[in-house]
Design a protein around this nucleic acid. Structure first.
Lengths: 338, 338
DNA sequence: CGCGCAACTGATCGCGGTAACATCCTTCAG
DNA sequence: CTGAAGGATGTTACCGCGATCAGTTGCGCG
């Protein structure tokens, strides 16, 4: 209520409470010895004025910024908010705070976002993926702060790395599908150049199929739009084109769910006539008529581990910095369990 | 590659390029006149060193921080990422940058997050809802920066406000349901004290029903878990308890979708025997066997308008600062269109 | 030929804090 | 009674940058 337009400073509080700025600073940060009496005086004055410390000045003076940059491709993907929640959970017990940047899967935007973030001198960086522009890698390298690359472990990290092997995830799914006796396998996914992890899953997938002399009989890619609807459309398109398909592997659960709903509506026997599998294990989809076969991507766990590494490093503790989690396959009701 | 551990400053670049720090600063910010020759020298040196400007120092010196605090309850709700995307879209064309804080629907956490954000002296605040703690309102008030409260317009804003009237949304849905001839209406929603907007929709909803002498015959609330599965469970529970229900109003589309899937499985005639409606109009759900009746919450639009207000205010342009958008009902396939 | 102006560059100061050190009291053991 | 130890506070010197103002140069023009 008592506000001109110049924002308050320590000096205002110090004048209001009759002590030096330094003492106010000490009180507000709970640092050093301050008598109970002055502490109260200061606290009261600060509250009365509605003083909010200026972290900009504080950070500059102390050379410490308790922010962790978290750089992810998208927020609407469901996957990343879960990673974030793992990160937040851990950081909540520290003085660190996550700050999120979104790249829309664009390397140049990633570079821009990273630059922007680094210019705030965060205490650490958590960044999705191992593929970055030359410049981005250089910045990360040069930043001198802990960097954790997450989600994926198929490649060389700049520093630390936490994730799963998407190639292996693809391989395992392929193996499970073959073991269950499916032969005419189709793949439906996102446009790939953008999404390295989906690409790697596909590579692992085809690799194992190839070893058994099997080839993907059909494939279709989408971008944009409602994933559920796209899954439906693409499934229809594929069945139209290749009626003898007996398995469809989707690059994510959402389009898989669309496909599942479509097939059930058509009265097709799942998993008898056609088997299905997705990827991610999104909790959101529990509640479908059938449980889609999928593979958990350990999203929360990845966030947790990554945050732990950063938190440890910030306190100069070394932590195991190459963590490969093992995704587990869940057969659900759409993949015959061999 | 050439990195000890002390981070680079303007001085390093200035020494490397043989000009003053001030000139380097000008080049890097594209401000003032600098000859092409020196500009190149500086840019080269900066790139070679991998210099990233320190915004902390810059912000302190210039008293300008190009951040907009965006405070929302949750990221996993689907609704908020969409608002965010509207905000980003607008801010991308300015020098402003959104920074997101999440409150988990907890007023105390909101207060903490707000405090934290304000301590970075952002240029503006976009915050979900009109209900805040006393202290939060005071902080917003005292901050002296533009504040836009979003999503909801049933109440008094601290400053600007963009959203829809959730009471009205509830009223309109109730009217449509009554008009279609449904009489035995149940409500399924989230635990309410946390979510004021859901509460207001419910209030508006019952208000209109009451005017026609109709009362909600059953209700059920949930929290946590997979919304789809919860919708399924709750719907089952309600039908068990009140078999004569002929309409179910869900507080969000996700649980509505769960209910829809459940009813279809049970072979119940929708919307003949039982009608359904949700809220939000989430694009994600296109692709369900039937299109759920719903009401668009104008999420993207809200983000856009809010960001526009902030952007205008930052440039000292006044903008219409109380925007009430009109949600439109979409009958889909689960509500008889009277 | 010198003045005025534009184009460019540099020096100084201070943004709002904090680290580190200095100072002033107490208190209490010897 | 003295001095060491330590608690409570103040003083000083930056942190890295940008606003401001003060040069410096070159050039057109009267």
């Amino acid at each position: 209520m008592t506000q001109k337009n110049r924002s308050l400073t320590l000096r205002d509080v110090s004048e209001a409470s009759g002590v030096s700025e330094m003492t106010v600073s000490r009180v507000l940060r709970n640092r050093g010895d301050v008598s109970a009496a002055t502490r109260d005086k200061v606290l009261t004055a600060a509250k009365e004025l509605g003083y909010v410390p200026n972290k900009i000045a504080g950070a500059l003076a102390s050379q410490r910024v308790n922010l962790v940059a978290v750089i992810i491709p998208s927020l609407s993907n469901m996957v990343f908010p879960e990673v974030l929640s793992g990160i937040s959970q851990i950081l909540e017990d520290t003085e660190l705070q996550p700050v999120v940047g979104v790249t829309d899967y664009l390397p140049e935007k990633e570079e821009k976002v990273l630059y922007e973030m680094l210019s705030w001198r965060p205490s650490g960086v958590i960044i999705a993926g191992l593929e970055h522009t030359e410049a981005s890698r250089a910045m990360l390298q040069a930043s001198g702060i802990p960097v954790v690359e997450i989600m994926d472990t198929d490649g060389d990290p700049v520093d630390a790395m936490v994730g799963i092997s998407h190639r292996r995830a693809g391989r395992e799914m392929a193996a499970a599908i073959l073991k269950a006796g499916y032969k005419k396998i189709a793949f439906l996914g996102t446009k790939m150049p953008l999404d390295h992890r989906a690409r790697k899953r596909f590579e692992g997938f085809t690799e194992v199929l190839a070893k058994s002399g099997v080839e993907v009989v059909d494939r279709e890619f989408y971008s944009g739009g409602s994933a559920l609807a796209k899954g439906r459309e693409m499934t229809e398109a594929v069945l139209d084109r290749s009626p003898d398909v007996d398995f469809i592997y989707y690059s994510n659960d959402m389009i898989g769910a669309g496909g599942l709903l479509y097939l059930l509506e058509k009265g097709i026997d799942v998993p008898g006539q056609i088997g299905l599998a997705g990827f991610n294990g999104v909790e959101l989809l529990q509640g479908l008529p059938r449980q889609l076969a999928t593979m958990d991507a350990c999203r929360r766990e990845i966030g947790i581990k990554a945050a732990e590494i950063i938190a440890a490093r910030v306190n100069d503790v070394e932590k195991d910095s190459q963590v490969t989690l093992a995704p587990t396959i869940s057969f659900g009701d759409t993949l015959r369990d061999a």
